[in-house]
């Protein structure tokens, strides 16, 4: 497989999701950014942490079976 292609693929998907665009690739799934608000997290030992807000990449696979065959 072409290295340049992989590189370009990687960059394009990155750029698009950073722009908050959803990238949907048929046969694979959907990439998008999800924002998690800051929240308090209680640990078992009684410690309470304030977790910072976060933007995370989320990948949702396509419905299984659709593209398997």
């Amino acid at each position: 497989m072409d290295k340049n292609f992989i590189k370009a693929f990687r960059e394009v998907v990155r750029e698009e999701i950073v722009k908050k665009n959803t990238v949907e690739i048929e046969g694979l799934g959907r990439f998008e950014i999800v924002h998690n608000k800051q929240h308090q997290k209680k640990m078992d030992d009684g410690q309470v942490l304030m977790m910072p807000p976060q933007d995370v990449v989320e990948f949702t696979p396509e419905k299984t079976g659709k593209n398997e065959d």
């Binding site: 950073v18 009684g46 410690q47």
Partner: peptide
Amino acid sequence: VNFKYAGMDPVEIKKPR
């Protein structure tokens, strides 16, 4: 992707017992 919040660490609000 998380550039806005990079470098932020959890803040301890309550110490563990």
